[in-house]
């Protein structure tokens, strides 16, 4: 495992993603969601919205790094809010 060069932030990041996937699976099994249309221009299931949210967050972080000198947690905060909005009304 040494060669993978783990650090605390990346470890937390991947554990977070893994937990998110497990949570989504459990949620879907307990109360199945259906595809629907929100403000996004296509019909999406919960998983689709999660993917869109995550991808948008990744780009959000890159945008902040490219255009500003602000610390990264600002982007993280905005992305969490955006994620909730996409999941709920997307």
């Amino acid at each position: 495992m040494g060669w993978m060069a783990w650090t605390l932030p990346t470890a937390l990041f991947f554990v977070g993603i893994a937990l998110l996937l497990v949570a989504m699976t459990v949620w879907q099994t307990v109360s199945p969601g259906h595809e629907r249309k929100g403000f996004l221009p296509l019909t999406t299931s919960r998983g689709d919205r999660l993917f869109i949210g995550l991808l948008a967050s990744a780009y959000g972080h890159l945008l902040l790094l490219a255009l500003t000198d602000w610390p990264l947690w600002i982007a993280t905060g905005v992305c969490v809010v955006g994620m909730v909005i996409i999941m709920k009304w997307g």
């Binding site: 060669w3 060069a5 650090t7």
Partner: peptide, 19 residues
């Protein structure tokens, strides 16, 4: 995962690395 790990460090070899 390894690529992600590498991307936030300055790596010379697996034992010599800086965050």
């Amino acid at each position: 995962m390894t690529v992600v790990n590498y991307s936030i460090q300055d790596i010379f070899d697996p034992n010599t690395r800086y965050f």
